[in-house]
């Protein structure tokens, strides 16, 4: 049940090991890692910078995580989201869920990344090697992905 917003990179193996250390009830651990990819709207992508809204970001991530906890029987969950400048190949975000059951771990992880992408106040600006910059536009496919999980009693709405 942890949320971290940080500039520095994270060690995937260490994070996952720490998440379930000492908990014998965990039968399945799932994770999603988002990376900066080099096929963005900006040709010749050099890097992207993630801006965020300190305070609201943590509040929204904690609420999204609490919603996942309410929906699935999770033993542990973790969201780590970076901000600042990152180059192609770098890790941006980590979502991990541990549960007695694999189905809950898979579904909760998928839910968290889908909702995070449409609710957490982060914005990407891409920069090309020639020095141009471009604010990435939100995708309707991300809204559609998040809408799959919608329920009438959504606390994260």
């Amino acid at each position: 049940m942890t949320v971290r917003v940080q500039r520095e990179d994270f060690d995937l193996g260490a994070e996952l090991t720490a998440l379930t250390a000492g908990n014998r009830r965990v039968g399945g651990l799932t994770s999603f890692v988002g990376l900066v990819r080099d096929m963005a709207e900006t040709p010749d992508l050099a890097a992207m910078t993630l801006e965020h809204y300190p305070g609201m970001t943590e509040r929204m991530l904690e609420r999204i995580e609490a919603e996942a906890q309410a929906r699935w029987p999770l033993e542990a969950s973790l969201i780590v989201h970076r901000y600042g400048r990152m180059e192609p190949g770098e890790q941006i975000v980590l979502v991990a869920c541990a549960s007695p059951h694999r189905e809950a771990a898979f579904e909760a992880c998928h839910f968290l990344i889908d909702w995070l992408k449409t609710k957490a106040p982060f914005w990407k600006v891409e920069e090309s090697h020639s020095g141009g910059t471009n604010w990435v536009e939100a995708r309707s496919s991300d809204d559609a992905a998040a809408a799959r999980w919608h329920r009438d009693d959504d606390a994260a709405e």
Partner: peptide, 10 residues
């Protein structure tokens, strides 16, 4: 009050 475009994190 914060004003911003649709979010693009993740």
């Amino acid at each position: 009050v914060a004003l911003f475009p649709p979010v693009t994190g993740g």
